[in-house]
Design a protein around this nucleic acid. Structure first.
Lengths: 251, 251
DNA sequence: CGGGGTGTTGAACATATTCAACAACTGTGG
DNA sequence: CCACAGTTGTTGAATATGTTCAACACCCCG
């Protein structure tokens, strides 16, 4: 059990998310300093960003925002992991992405969020008022530049996911998914074998356009063919990475 | 037959795509002036953009660039329509998007295009050397800002497409597709009924994660239920738009 | 006319889904 | 510390949606 309040309500208001002016440079110790938008800024600029930064924490399973809610804030994940999803009226769900430390979230169309965001694990974020951040864009074009670059990367990923959802078999989807987790872990500098799989089978299914059962069956088959080893604690050992890579690419 | 050279090779080199310095302000007459990146610029800035602009034409069916090719140029479509796609080694294809006048294309990961681009209809484009355009970004931050905004919109669309590919039925996909075409036509100020459908059934299938046959059957069913009227010349009348909208949203 | 591409329709089939039961694991309270 | 309840994950059997394979219709152009 984490020491974080585990009620299912977002702990955003005043108490937790006040401007971080008291702490002169929390970013210095930030584990994702080099990955996030912040990497575009130097010391002075970082201070300016930090002045409008509000730290926020979010316990596992709680919702940061719903699709269609007023998009007044944007966020940067510093620890934990989250999922973004869209719903159809009858409850069908598509997880459009998982968010890992260093990732930016809070994309909006106009003034509304276009997806919901929920914590997969206990998470910590930097929260920024959208209006304040965009004022900073005018001052530091490199910040906007960095954000454009991150959006481009997101778009590349989105296109890969379309290929996956539109054309790949269940086996290929699972292989791609495992490699994505592995790649992200590597970027974050955490151990990549076994792969840490923080999300449920149901989440995986909703991300890959499959049902829970198909995810489970496909993983079992990969285990039986000796490509992976399934541990009981949401960790997966990759026994034959090359096989996994060929599968993922549709060979 | 168009008067454009119909060989299956891109007509990009010198002859056609020289800097447009001779024509003092071709943008003034541009039909997509207000839709494209250019809308961020005023007269003087537009001149500067125009100085590095190279007009290009592309006949139907020809490839502008392949996935993985060196991404030295970016483009803005001014007329016609194009498709962007990714391939799996065995030939499975996912069309990740259709491109209409005013749209930007040429997204790259690093230095390589991440999708192929092919003309669905005879097309005309503004071509820019990536390096020159990014120098202009430093001078005119609003240009980059505009591009970020367009990327954001693309990302929103990409998320919607993931929901479609991962969770919608064939009928819902077709309905969503028709409404997308209708919406784009409206933005461009062209007649929206009947909907002009420039792409083949096969292209539609590869965009929606379906086969040609399923696209055809589903359209036939929509026709039989009186929701649409299929004309023989790639035009589709929407008889019951409300029904189509409910279908698209999964109601 | 005749031919290639495009679109439609039918029948058999396959992959993944649905429905159902059960197993494993987690955390809780007695 | 164990029993129990709830959640998560696995497995099986029947089913469905969309695919595959095949034939044919259409239509624009030559």
């Amino acid at each position: 059990m984490p020491e974080i309040d585990s009620s299912n309500v977002v702990r955003l208001p005043e108490a937790v998310s006040r401007p971080a002016g008291d702490d002169s440079s929390p970013c210095a110790a930030c584990p994702v300093r080099e990955l996030a938008v912040c990497s575009a800024l130097d010391g002075h600029e970082l201070d300016r960003l930090n002045a409008i930064r509000m730290p926020a924490e979010l316990p596992q399973g709680s919702t940061l925002f719903d699709e269609g809610a007023a998009a007044d804030y944007v966020y940067n994940l510093t620890s934990g992991s989250m999922k973004l999803y869209k719903l159809l009226p009858d409850g069908r769900r598509q997880i459009t992405g998982f968010v890992f430390p260093g990732d930016f979230l809070g994309l909006a169309h106009d003034t509304e969020y276009v997806y919901a965001a929920e914590a997969v694990k206990d998470s910590a974020l930097c929260k920024f008022k959208r209006s304040q951040l965009s004022r900073l864009f005018d001052e530091f074009p490199r910040l906007e530049s960095r954000l454009l670059s991150m959006s481009r990367d997101e778009l590349v990923e989105a296109h890969n996911q379309m290929l996956l959802l539109g054309r790949k078999t269940a086996r290929e989807r699972i292989a791609s998914f495992l490699l994505m987790l592995s790649r992200r872990a590597e970027e974050l500098g955490v151990p990549i074998n076994p792969i840490n799989v923080p999300m449920s089978r149901n989440d995986i299914g909703d991300y890959l356009g499959l049902t829970t059962e198909t995810v489970s069956r496909t993983l079992t088959r990969l285990k039986n063919t000796g490509v992976i080893i399934l541990n009981s604690d949401r960790k997966i050992d990759v026994a034959d990475r090359e096989a996994l890579e060929e599968m993922a690419d549709g060979f």
